[in-house]
Amino acid sequence: MAKDPWGSKALGQALSLATNMAASVAVGFFLGDFLDKRFGTWPWLTILFFLLGTATGMKMTYQAVSGKIETPEDVQKMVNIKDNMTRLKEVRDQIKKSQDPKDEDQ
């Protein structure tokens, strides 16, 4: 497998990032607007669906970057930026530690 000489899957995802974001926000907004006109509840559903659309856009962007969100742990990963940052720092410290002794030897 892995015959993808043009890197076309990555190309497709890269070019779809912008329109995906715009399309999901637009879908949310217009769906909310439509439902509001239907039920006469302006502006609540518009606001709700606009926010949902924005969230969808973020989800699609995250999926394009980090792969599909399938388990609750994936959501944890997505939401816990703080955890990720501390983990990043730990790794950086470890790398520093592993490099330091060599420096001392020299």
């Binding site: 070019l15 329109t19 999901s24 879908v27 769906l31 969230a55």
Partner: peptide
């Protein structure tokens, strides 16, 4: 319903947003 049921509206909106995104691009 993945990752859990609360994502249902997001997943449904995503399904609608995809064809719109394809169209517009």
């Amino acid at each position: 319903l993945t990752p859990f049921a609360a994502f249902l509206p997001l997943n449904l909106l995503e399904e609608v947003a995809r064809p719109l995104s394809l169209t517009l691009r």
